[in-house]
Nucleic acid binder design. Structure first.
Ligand code: MN
Ligand code: MN
Ligand code: MN
Ligand code: MN
Lengths: 230, 230
DNA sequence: TCTAATATTTAGCCATGCCTAATCTTTATG
DNA sequence: CATAAAGATTAGGCATGGCTAAATATTAGA
């Protein structure tokens, strides 16, 4: 799969196109140029090249669509990017807000073996530090639908933090201050009608999370069913 | 230090030149072209560029010499290369013969912080999986012969911690507990015959290091001669 | 010392990607 | 439907870093 010899520049184009497609948007020249901070004219040139390499289908004035091959490569990049981010946060102690730019470089390192070993070393994580799903070795993206906003969790349910909707510095810093991190398990004890804040139990102690906060937090609710040790 | 914006191509030239200089050879056009598998004509072109960037001194027909700045950057590359190799072997379970090519890519990832965290994560290793010395954060290449076990240091001598012989989690954790880290300077005050432990002076205070501990610590003894403040 | 072999540089090209300005296409709008 | 405005492509350059072939410098041998 993938590997190939696509330059890191071209890889970034593939990623930009994938990112648009995943959001249901058209990969137009201008949308891509926006994402990559390049001029539209440069994008046109690159789209011709990628098309010649069978990585995208491109009809002038109509935007680009990833081919199967192009999509595979783009998804592998996503996988690498998110695994490296996870490595930096989980193993090296980086903050979630510090890892993106470095991962933007690391994702271009070309070695299947490195990535599969890294994946194993990290314990085959399913989500990166920002809560985005990490494609598995087959390129399968974990289903996001199992994640819900904390503000939608019913009373009495237990859940684990899996991601965030905002990645702003101030927000991530606030999470640090409150000791909220990925994987944190909590139970919803009470919901205050007055201001929409949540009272949650974390370990032995109880805390209150503001409405604004819980709206930005993604969690995976513990289902009664998939608890294996019945 | 270093950082800059030197492209990865140029960085590989700097490394090639350093490698020749370290072996006492002249960095001639042909020697460099040999190392990098490029044509001599291409090397000439690059030497002019590097010279224009003050990374080397270059006199046509006379080969290249690294400037202080160029040497710093080349040594930082060596550091990154060897730390990544160590990571792959120690943490990911690669064989020592599989890591060079991947490290050749990883070394170009630009992030001081990534490297200092990786260094700490690995326990400040002094040598890579091939036995080559890893430059420390100051760019000092450990001269193998100058490193001795702390257990071999004579009474009254002053030395600096330069490495460890074991990288086990429990050992590294113990070092953390005692506040022993790379570069720590100490003086041997007393050696207890009874259990082989060492009494050392660190800054203002004195501590006792166990026999087991000092056997696993590598240090560089301060020579009387190169001590400037006579 | 003079010449031949070797090393190095120069000249001229090519590919990759990016940019600006100019020229289409496509889409909105009256 | 006609015509702007917005979006996209082409044309013409530039910088980087390769390559080959030709010219020039250095070095070694007779
Ligand atoms: Mn990237
Ligand atoms: Mn991410
Ligand atoms: Mn390299
Ligand atoms: Mn090595």
């Amino acid at each position: 799969m993938s590997s190939s010899t696509t330059s890191s520049n071209r890889q970034d184009y593939l990623k930009a196109i994938l990112s648009l497609e995943l959001r249901g948007l058209k990969a137009s020249t201008s949308a891509i140029s926006e994402k990559l901070s390049t001029q539209p004219a440069s994008v046109t040139g690159m789209l011709r090249v990628l098309s010649g390499n069978d990585l995208i289908e491109y009809i002038p004035y109509q935007g680009a669509k990833l081919t199967l091959e192009g999509r595979d490569e783009a998804i592998f990049l996503l996988r690498k990017h998110r695994l490296w981010e996870t490595f930096m946060v989980e193993k090296l102690g980086f903050g979630w807000d510090e890892v993106h730019d470095v991962a933007e470089q690391l994702e271009h390192v070309d070695s299947q073996k490195l990535i599969s070993k890294l994946d194993a070393f990290l314990g085959f994580p399913r989500f990166d530090p920002h809560g985005d799903p990490i494609p598995d070795s087959q390129g399968v993206l974990a289903d996001r639908s199992t994640l819900v906003g904390v503000n939608e969790i019913a009373l009495g349910k237990t859940a684990s933090i899996r991601g965030v909707l905002s990645s702003s510095d101030s927000f991530l810093k606030h999470l640090d201050d409150l000791g909220i991190k990925l994987g944190l398990q909590f139970t919803v004890v009470k919901v205050f009608e007055y201001d929409g804040s949540y009272q949650v139990k974390v370990g032995m102690s109880e805390e209150v999370w503001s409405k604004k906060l819980v709206e930005q937090l993604l969690a995976e609710v513990k289902s009664q069913v998939d608890n294996d040790n019945i």
